[in-house]
Protein backbone atom coordinates (compact mmCIF):
# COMPACT_ATOMS: atom_id res chain seq x y z
CA UNK A 1 0.00 0.00 0.00
CA UNK A 2 2.80 2.36 1.02
CA UNK A 3 4.66 1.39 -2.17
CA UNK A 4 1.63 2.19 -4.30
CA UNK A 5 1.36 5.61 -2.65
CA UNK A 6 5.04 6.24 -3.30
CA UNK A 7 4.63 5.35 -6.98
CA UNK A 8 1.58 7.61 -7.18
CA UNK A 9 3.46 10.50 -5.60
CA UNK A 10 6.37 9.95 -7.97
CA UNK A 11 4.02 9.94 -10.95
CA UNK A 12 2.41 13.18 -9.80
CA UNK A 13 5.74 14.88 -9.22
CA UNK A 14 7.04 13.65 -12.61
CA UNK A 15 3.90 14.98 -14.28
CA UNK A 16 4.37 18.32 -12.53
CA UNK A 17 8.01 18.36 -13.62
CA UNK A 18 7.07 17.57 -17.22
CA UNK A 19 4.44 20.34 -17.24
CA UNK A 20 6.91 22.78 -15.73
CA UNK A 21 9.57 22.03 -18.30
CA UNK A 22 7.26 21.24 -21.22
CA UNK A 23 8.11 24.46 -23.03
CA UNK A 24 11.84 23.95 -22.58
CA UNK A 25 11.55 20.35 -23.79
CA UNK A 26 9.63 21.42 -26.89
CA UNK A 27 12.21 24.11 -27.72
CA UNK A 28 14.95 21.51 -27.22
CA UNK A 29 13.07 19.17 -29.57
CA UNK A 30 12.89 21.89 -32.21
CA UNK A 31 16.63 22.55 -31.88
CA UNK A 32 17.33 18.82 -32.03
CA UNK A 33 15.36 18.60 -35.29
CA UNK A 34 17.39 21.54 -36.58
CA UNK A 35 20.65 19.75 -35.78
CA UNK A 36 19.40 16.50 -37.35
CA UNK A 37 18.32 18.48 -40.43
CA UNK A 38 21.82 19.91 -40.71
CA UNK A 39 23.64 16.64 -40.02
CA UNK A 40 21.51 14.10 -41.89
CA UNK A 41 19.89 15.75 -44.85
CA UNK A 42 18.73 12.46 -46.39
CA UNK A 43 16.20 11.71 -43.63
CA UNK A 44 14.84 15.24 -43.68
CA UNK A 45 14.61 15.20 -47.49
CA UNK A 46 12.58 11.99 -47.34
CA UNK A 47 10.21 13.41 -44.72
CA UNK A 48 9.94 16.64 -46.72
CA UNK A 49 9.09 14.78 -49.94
CA UNK A 50 6.46 12.68 -48.13
CA UNK A 51 4.83 15.75 -46.52
CA UNK A 52 4.89 17.70 -49.78
CA UNK A 53 3.38 14.69 -51.60
CA UNK A 54 0.45 14.81 -49.17
CA UNK A 55 0.12 18.59 -49.29
CA UNK A 56 0.52 19.05 -53.07
CA UNK A 57 -3.04 17.96 -54.02
CA UNK A 58 -4.47 20.21 -51.27
CA UNK A 59 -2.29 23.08 -52.46
CA UNK A 60 -3.46 22.44 -56.03
CA UNK A 61 -7.07 22.85 -54.86
CA UNK A 62 -6.23 25.97 -52.80
CA UNK A 63 -4.37 27.50 -55.74
CA UNK A 64 -7.41 27.25 -58.06
CA UNK A 65 -9.33 30.17 -56.52
CA UNK A 66 -5.99 31.90 -56.05
CA UNK A 67 -5.38 31.53 -59.78
CA UNK A 68 -8.77 33.11 -60.46
CA UNK A 69 -7.74 36.11 -58.33
CA UNK A 70 -4.37 36.24 -60.10
CA UNK A 71 -6.08 36.15 -63.50
CA UNK A 72 -8.38 39.00 -62.48
CA UNK A 73 -5.40 41.08 -61.28
CA UNK A 74 -3.49 40.32 -64.49
CA UNK A 75 -6.55 41.20 -66.57
CA UNK A 76 -6.85 44.64 -64.95
CA UNK A 77 -3.11 45.24 -65.35
CA UNK A 78 -3.30 44.21 -69.02
CA UNK A 79 -6.26 46.49 -69.68
CA UNK A 80 -4.41 49.44 -68.20
CA UNK A 81 -1.27 48.77 -70.22
CA UNK A 82 -3.00 47.68 -73.45
CA UNK A 83 -2.23 50.70 -75.65
CA UNK A 84 1.45 50.78 -74.66
CA UNK A 85 1.65 47.02 -75.04
CA UNK A 86 0.23 47.18 -78.57
CA UNK A 87 2.84 49.70 -79.68
CA UNK A 88 5.59 47.67 -78.05
CA UNK A 89 4.38 44.45 -79.67
CA UNK A 90 4.21 46.05 -83.13
CA UNK A 91 7.79 47.22 -82.81
CA UNK A 92 8.86 43.84 -81.46
CA UNK A 93 7.06 42.05 -84.28
CA UNK A 94 8.89 44.09 -86.90
CA UNK A 95 12.19 43.35 -85.19
CA UNK A 96 11.42 39.64 -84.84
CA UNK A 97 10.48 39.32 -88.49
CA UNK A 98 13.89 40.57 -89.51
CA UNK A 99 15.43 38.14 -87.01
CA UNK A 100 13.36 35.33 -88.51
CA UNK A 101 14.99 35.97 -91.87
CA UNK A 102 18.41 35.88 -90.26
CA UNK A 103 17.55 32.67 -88.37
CA UNK A 104 16.30 30.91 -91.50
CA UNK A 105 19.43 31.85 -93.38
CA UNK A 106 21.64 30.68 -90.49
CA UNK A 107 19.70 27.43 -90.13
CA UNK A 108 20.25 26.59 -93.77
CA UNK A 109 23.92 27.51 -93.47
CA UNK A 110 24.26 25.46 -90.29
CA UNK A 111 22.64 22.44 -91.93
CA UNK A 112 24.99 22.63 -94.86
CA UNK A 113 28.05 22.96 -92.61
CA UNK A 114 26.93 20.09 -90.34
CA UNK A 115 26.55 17.74 -93.26
CA UNK A 116 29.94 18.91 -94.48
CA UNK A 117 31.67 18.04 -91.16
CA UNK A 118 29.49 14.99 -90.28
CA UNK A 119 28.64 16.79 -86.99
CA UNK A 120 26.82 14.70 -84.36
CA UNK A 121 24.42 16.71 -82.22
CA UNK A 122 23.97 16.11 -78.45
CA UNK A 123 21.22 13.98 -76.91
CA UNK A 124 17.66 15.12 -77.54
CA UNK A 125 16.09 16.94 -74.64
CA UNK A 126 12.71 15.83 -73.31
CA UNK A 127 10.42 17.81 -71.08
CA UNK A 128 7.60 17.40 -68.60
CA UNK A 129 5.07 20.19 -68.21
CA UNK A 130 4.12 20.84 -64.58
CA UNK A 131 1.86 23.25 -62.75
CA UNK A 132 3.21 25.46 -59.97
CA UNK A 133 1.11 24.60 -56.89
CA UNK A 134 3.21 26.21 -54.17
CA UNK A 135 5.40 29.26 -54.00
CA UNK A 136 7.54 29.74 -50.90
CA UNK A 137 8.62 33.24 -51.82
CA UNK A 138 9.56 34.54 -48.38
CA UNK A 139 12.51 36.74 -47.47
CA UNK A 140 14.49 33.64 -46.54
CA UNK A 141 13.72 31.02 -49.15
CA UNK A 142 12.94 31.05 -52.87
CA UNK A 143 11.46 27.79 -54.03
CA UNK A 144 8.39 26.45 -55.79
CA UNK A 145 6.40 23.24 -55.55
CA UNK A 146 5.33 21.44 -58.73
CA UNK A 147 2.55 18.90 -59.17
CA UNK A 148 4.81 16.42 -61.00
CA UNK A 149 7.23 14.00 -59.34
CA UNK A 150 9.17 10.77 -59.85
CA UNK A 151 6.07 9.11 -61.28
CA UNK A 152 6.02 11.64 -64.12
CA UNK A 153 9.78 11.28 -64.69
CA UNK A 154 11.05 14.27 -62.71
CA UNK A 155 14.52 13.71 -61.25
CA UNK A 156 16.85 15.60 -58.96
CA UNK A 157 19.02 18.20 -60.72
CA UNK A 158 16.86 18.68 -63.82
CA UNK A 159 16.56 22.22 -65.17
CA UNK A 160 13.24 24.03 -64.86
CA UNK A 161 12.41 26.51 -67.60
CA UNK A 162 9.69 28.80 -68.80
CA UNK A 163 9.30 30.18 -72.29
CA UNK A 164 11.42 33.16 -71.15
CA UNK A 165 14.41 31.35 -69.67
CA UNK A 166 15.84 29.32 -66.81
CA UNK A 167 13.79 29.40 -63.59
CA UNK A 168 15.76 26.97 -61.39
CA UNK A 169 16.52 23.32 -60.83
CA UNK A 170 14.83 20.39 -59.12
CA UNK A 171 16.18 19.78 -55.60
CA UNK A 172 13.60 17.42 -54.07
CA UNK A 173 11.50 14.79 -55.74
CA UNK A 174 8.48 13.08 -54.25
CA UNK A 175 6.21 10.55 -55.93
CA UNK A 176 3.85 13.17 -57.35
CA UNK A 177 5.48 16.45 -56.39
CA UNK A 178 8.83 18.18 -56.68
CA UNK A 179 10.58 21.27 -55.36
CA UNK A 180 12.36 23.78 -57.57
CA UNK A 181 15.19 25.86 -56.12
CA UNK A 182 14.85 29.17 -57.96
CA UNK A 183 17.89 30.88 -59.47
CA UNK A 184 17.57 33.80 -57.02
CA UNK A 185 17.62 31.60 -53.87
CA UNK A 186 20.66 32.11 -51.66
CA UNK A 187 21.68 28.47 -52.17
CA UNK A 188 21.61 28.68 -55.97
CA UNK A 189 24.92 28.81 -57.92
CA UNK A 190 24.92 28.58 -61.71
CA UNK A 191 27.98 28.64 -63.97
CA UNK A 192 27.19 31.28 -66.61
CA UNK A 193 28.86 33.30 -69.30
CA UNK A 194 28.19 36.75 -70.69
CA UNK A 195 26.98 36.12 -74.24
CA UNK A 196 28.67 39.15 -75.83
CA UNK A 197 32.14 38.78 -74.31
CA UNK A 198 32.13 34.99 -73.58
CA UNK A 199 33.53 35.72 -70.09
CA UNK A 200 32.70 33.14 -67.44
CA UNK A 201 31.28 33.77 -63.96
CA UNK A 202 28.95 32.22 -61.40
CA UNK A 203 25.43 33.50 -60.91
CA UNK A 204 24.55 33.51 -57.20
CA UNK A 205 21.14 34.20 -55.71
CA UNK A 206 20.65 36.29 -52.59
CA UNK A 207 16.91 35.84 -51.99
CA UNK A 208 16.10 39.15 -53.65
CA UNK A 209 14.33 39.51 -56.99
CA UNK A 210 17.59 39.77 -58.89
CA UNK A 211 20.76 37.67 -58.68
CA UNK A 212 24.41 38.75 -58.78
CA UNK A 213 27.53 37.65 -60.65
CA UNK A 214 30.36 36.24 -58.53
CA UNK A 215 33.79 34.71 -59.23
CA UNK A 216 34.25 37.02 -62.18
CA UNK A 217 37.62 37.10 -63.96
CA UNK A 218 39.65 40.25 -63.27
CA UNK A 219 38.99 43.08 -65.70
CA UNK A 220 35.64 41.71 -66.85
CA UNK A 221 34.04 44.10 -69.33
CA UNK A 222 30.36 43.54 -68.65
CA UNK A 223 27.77 46.21 -69.48
CA UNK A 224 24.15 46.77 -68.55
CA UNK A 225 21.91 45.03 -71.07
CA UNK A 226 24.30 42.13 -71.78
CA UNK A 227 22.60 38.75 -71.91
CA UNK A 228 23.77 36.01 -69.52
CA UNK A 229 23.43 32.35 -70.48
CA UNK A 230 24.46 29.06 -68.84
CA UNK A 231 28.05 28.09 -69.61
CA UNK A 232 27.57 24.35 -69.25
CA UNK A 233 30.48 24.00 -66.82
CA UNK A 234 29.94 21.75 -63.83
CA UNK A 235 27.56 19.60 -65.84
CA UNK A 236 24.36 20.71 -64.17
CA UNK A 237 22.92 22.57 -67.15
CA UNK A 238 23.75 22.41 -70.84
CA UNK A 239 25.40 25.49 -72.33
CA UNK A 240 23.43 28.34 -73.82
CA UNK A 241 20.20 28.40 -71.77
CA UNK A 242 19.07 32.01 -71.39
CA UNK A 243 19.22 33.12 -67.76
CA UNK A 244 19.03 36.90 -67.49
CA UNK A 245 20.14 40.35 -68.51
CA UNK A 246 22.70 42.54 -66.74
CA UNK A 247 20.61 45.12 -64.89
CA UNK A 248 23.32 47.20 -63.24
CA UNK A 249 27.09 47.27 -62.95
CA UNK A 250 28.73 48.91 -59.96
CA UNK A 251 31.95 48.67 -57.98
CA UNK A 252 30.26 46.37 -55.49
CA UNK A 253 28.23 44.04 -57.65
CA UNK A 254 26.92 43.11 -61.08
CA UNK A 255 23.17 42.55 -60.73
CA UNK A 256 21.30 40.28 -63.12
CA UNK A 257 17.59 40.56 -63.83
CA UNK A 258 16.29 37.04 -64.52
CA UNK A 259 14.40 36.63 -67.80
CA UNK A 260 11.69 34.69 -65.99
CA UNK A 261 8.70 36.78 -64.94
CA UNK A 262 8.27 35.70 -61.30
CA UNK A 263 4.76 37.16 -61.21
CA UNK A 264 3.43 35.01 -64.02
CA UNK A 265 4.74 31.56 -63.26
CA UNK A 266 1.87 29.15 -63.63
CA UNK A 267 3.26 26.34 -65.77
CA UNK A 268 6.89 25.36 -66.17
CA UNK A 269 8.85 22.82 -68.19
CA UNK A 270 11.08 20.37 -66.35
CA UNK A 271 13.77 19.60 -68.90
CA UNK A 272 15.89 16.49 -69.04
CA UNK A 273 18.93 17.12 -71.21
CA UNK A 274 20.33 13.66 -70.60
CA UNK A 275 23.20 15.08 -68.53
CA UNK A 276 24.27 13.06 -65.48
CA UNK A 277 25.28 16.25 -63.67
CA UNK A 278 27.08 16.77 -60.39
CA UNK A 279 24.10 15.79 -58.27
CA UNK A 280 23.88 12.15 -57.23
CA UNK A 281 20.50 10.50 -57.76
CA UNK A 282 18.28 10.30 -54.69
CA UNK A 283 18.77 6.92 -53.05
CA UNK A 284 15.18 6.80 -51.80
CA UNK A 285 13.55 7.01 -55.17
CA UNK A 286 13.76 4.59 -58.02
CA UNK A 287 12.94 6.31 -61.31
CA UNK A 288 9.76 4.90 -62.74
CA UNK A 289 8.91 4.64 -66.41
CA UNK A 290 7.70 7.95 -67.73
CA UNK A 291 4.08 8.56 -68.44
CA UNK A 292 3.92 12.35 -68.63
CA UNK A 293 3.53 14.27 -71.86
CA UNK A 294 6.95 14.38 -73.44
CA UNK A 295 8.18 15.67 -76.70
CA UNK A 296 11.56 16.63 -78.03
CA UNK A 297 12.36 20.31 -77.61
CA UNK A 298 12.05 22.29 -80.79
Amino acid sequence: MADRMKVGQLAVSLKGLAQRFAFGLLVLTAFAVMVIGKADTVIIERVRSAVVDIAAPVLAVVSRPVQTVNDAVAEVEDLIAMREELTRLREENARLLSWQNVAQRLEAENKALRSFFAFSSGPQATFITARVVGDAGSAFVRSMLLNAGARQGVRNGQAVMTADGLAGRITEVGETSARVLLINDINSRIPVLVERTRERAVLAGDNSRQARLTLMPPGMTVEAGDRVVTSGHGGTYPAGLPVGVVASVSEKAVRIEPLVDWNRLEFVRVVDFGIAGILPPQPSLVPLPRRGAQAPLP
Partner: peptide, 21 residues
Protein backbone atom coordinates in the same frame (compact mmCIF):
# COMPACT_ATOMS: atom_id res chain seq x y z
CA UNK B 1 6.24 25.25 -37.16
CA UNK B 2 7.75 21.98 -38.39
CA UNK B 3 5.07 21.72 -41.06
CA UNK B 4 5.89 25.23 -42.32
CA UNK B 5 9.59 24.36 -42.49
CA UNK B 6 8.95 21.11 -44.34
CA UNK B 7 6.59 22.68 -46.86
CA UNK B 8 8.35 26.00 -47.41
CA UNK B 9 11.78 24.44 -47.83
CA UNK B 10 13.41 26.47 -45.05
CA UNK B 11 15.89 24.72 -42.69
CA UNK B 12 13.80 22.36 -40.54
CA UNK B 13 13.19 23.57 -36.98
CA UNK B 14 13.61 27.30 -37.57
CA UNK B 15 9.92 28.20 -37.75
CA UNK B 16 9.19 25.70 -34.97
CA UNK B 17 11.59 27.48 -32.57
CA UNK B 18 10.39 30.94 -33.62
CA UNK B 19 6.67 30.16 -33.30
CA UNK B 20 7.24 28.49 -29.91
CA UNK B 21 9.00 31.67 -28.74
Amino acid sequence: GLLIDLLAGSPVGVNAVVLLM
